[in-house]
């Protein structure tokens, strides 16, 4: 199986994603430059974090018009697994592949720390291997991670089980204190209606080695691995 990691001018977590996929999980992985019109032979795509186009205008606003994003939209339509992390999530929102938008953190500061997450949808290609009731410890690093959706959209997301991750305390309680950025409903990650496109602000690719603080991010990549292998055979 093959994974592609998109690279935009200003991506800076592309090598971390590559490391997590290739060196930790042994997945054949290649970088895909943003000017490529096609994704090539891939079974899954990671849109990594960073500051694509310097966050000019709005985070992710310019990157969504890169040629590769047309290929990503076609891949999403076909049901291909896509994970947007941090700036990758912002790009998916701007590309309207996921609903809602991102605002500046409520406290107006860049926030870089480990947070706790509960997974509320294990049917996506990136969450199926997360143990039940597990509280994941995964870092965030963003200035604009304050997820916004109006009350109508929030209800639609709830009803369709599209909320994938919420910020919580160490016991899994979803509290205001555990919310690092002011996100509506403590939302840290969502998926599209089909569940194949997932966006999240926390960085699972930075949590794949326990020596570096946590290896809980591995569950996401292991999920993708088992899902795609199951589909192949």
């Amino acid at each position: 199986m093959n994974f592609g990691v998109l690279v935009f001018p200003g991506s800076n977590c592309d090598h971390d994603a590559y490391h997590a996929l290739k060196h930790i999980h042994g997945i054949n992985t290649s970088f895909i430059w943003h000017k490529e019109p096609e994704l090539g032979n891939v079974d899954g795509v990671i849109i990594p974090g960073g500051f694509s186009y310097g966050d000019y205008l709005r985070s992710g606003a310019i990157a969504r018009f890169s040629p590769v994003m047309n290929a990503v939209a076609r891949f999403a339509e076909k049901g291909g697994p896509i994970l947007g992390i941090c700036n990758g999530f912002q790009i998916l929102l701007e590309a309207r592949l996921l609903p809602g938008t991102m605002m500046a953190n409520e406290q107006l500061r860049f926030t870089c720390k480990f947070v706790n997450l509960v997974c509320q949808n294990r049917k996506t290609p990136f969450t199926s291997s997360i143990p039940d009731d597990m509280v994941l410890s995964i870092p965030v690093a963003h200035g604009e991670g304050n997820y916004y959706a109006d009350s109508k959209l929030l209800k639609e997301l709830e009803d369709a089980n599209q909320v994938v991750f919420r910020y919580c305390d160490t016991d899994g309680n979803i509290t205001a204190e555990a919310n690092p950025n002011g996100s509506a409903g403590n939302i840290a990650g969502i998926c599209n209606k089909k569940g194949n496109v997932v966006g999240m602000m926390p960085h699972p690719e930075r949590a794949v080695e326990s020596d570096l603080g946590s290896d809980h991010g591995r569950y996401l990549f292991e999920s993708a691995l088992s899902r795609i292998v199951a589909a192949l055979y």
Binding site: L57, R58, A61, I62, F65, E94, T101, M103, Y148
Partner: peptide, 8 residues
């Protein structure tokens, strides 16, 4: 198309 994000 680009300059404004009409969601917000």
């Amino acid at each position: 198309k680009l300059l404004a994000n009409t969601v917000m």
